[in-house]
């Protein structure tokens, strides 16, 4: 019956050769009046072997890098470099050294903006880097976590440039809202240096959350806030002391003393291999609020406290469940 319908409608069929033959008999299509032209036979390209393919790809990559043939977004994010050069070694640390377990990744949206708010710890902010990998590797298509950093990060040579190239930007309302409006996942650590540089005895105690600028940014753009709790990062460099005069001299927020640093010199820079858990909590919606609420300190502080409490409770729960600092 389908055939008859097609004949009546005189649709040039694409289905089966039988159909086509019948069709040609009844209605000679204008295509048939032309001499049949076969496509130029192409020699089938030999399948390059794996090594060759890789070599060619490597040269292609090198050529693009050397001639500046790659795209950088307005924040300076160089996706090609991040994906191919920066992420692979960090992923090794993620998988082999810290054996990170990402939990609740289904709470990461597949598209659209979201603000990821996490606790901060570890003397050096490795927790943000690992969270970035957890986000990238547990979303499909892979999404990049665009982190907001203190201005100090961008003042430091090499680090500042690397931070920009991997998609990070200055922690300020303008940049945060711009990224969120563009539908990016934005990471923020509201404790700042107070969190990352707290001493070992205060581990897993959330510090003050600042002025709640991150809540204002989320309210203005109406994106959800995803609370993230990182367990394991506190133990990588246990900060047992702080040489304040040296920190002041160098312009650092603190100069850490750990059991291995500065005692063992550069060897002290190797983090202890603690087992990490990164838990992504349920998104807290902000689109039910009015964007004008971003200027209402009461609402901002309430939301900020809600996020803080959620992270703190999750931290305690995870700590109670973990079998050991290094085990797992």
């Amino acid at each position: 019956m389908g055939e008859r319908v097609m004949q009546e409608a005189r649709v040039i069929p694409l289905r089966s050769p039988g159909q086509r033959r019948r069709m040609n008999r009844s209605v000679p299509s204008p295509v048939d009046s032309r001499p049949p032209v076969d496509p130029t036979p192409l020699r089938p390209a030999p399948e390059p072997t794996g090594v060759q393919q890789q070599l060619a790809n490597a040269i292609g990559f090198l050529r693009k890098r050397l001639t500046g043939d790659y795209a950088v977004d307005e924040f300076g994010f160089d996706e090609q470099l991040t994906e191919n050069v920066i992420l692979p070694p960090l992923r090794m640390i993620y998988e082999k050294w810290f054996r990170v377990e990402a939990i609740g990744t289904e709470n990461l949206p597949a598209d659209g903006g979201a603000l990821i708010v996490s606790n901060h710890s570890g003397t050096l902010p490795l927790d943000s880097v690992m969270t970035g990998i957890a986000v990238h590797d547990n979303t499909s298509p892979n999404r990049y976590l665009r982190m907001l950093g203190a201005d100090l990060v961008f003042q430091v040579p090499v680090l500042g440039a690397l931070a920009r190239k991997t998609g990070q930007t200055l922690a300020c309302g303008a940049d945060a809202e711009r990224l969120l409006t563009a539908g990016e996942l934005v990471g923020v650590w509201p404790e700042g240096f107070k969190g990352v540089g707290k001493s070992f005895k205060d581990r897993y105690k959330l510090q003050r959350f600042g002025r709640g600028g991150f809540v204002s940014a989320a309210l203005r753009t109406g994106v959800p806030i995803i609370p993230v709790s990182v367990v394991g990062a506190e133990e990588i460099y246990p900060k047992i002391g702080d040489i304040k005069p040296l920190a002041r001299l160098l312009g650092f927020p603190y100069f850490p003393v750990t059991p291995t640093f500065p005692l063992l010199g550069p060897l002290g820079a190797v983090p202890l291999p603690s087992k990490w858990y990164i838990e992504f909590g349920e998104p807290i919606r902000t689109d039910r609020h009015d964007p004008a609420d971003a200027d209402d300190p009461m609402i901002v502080f309430n939301l900020s406290d809600q996020v803080r409490e959620t992270i703190q409770q999750t931290l305690y729960r995870r700590l109670g469940q973990r079998p050991g600092i290094f085990r797992g």
């Binding site: 390209a45 030999p46 060759q52 070599l55 060619a56 040269i59 090198l62 050529r63 050397l66 043939d69």
Partner: peptide, 21 residues
């Protein structure tokens, strides 16, 4: 004029891709 000719690298890349295994 570029110091390194990108055309030569591209040619090399293509040659590796084309050569019979």
């Amino acid at each position: 004029r570029p110091v390194l000719d990108p055309g030569r690298l591209a040619a090399l890349e293509n040659r590796i891709r084309r050569t019979d295994g």
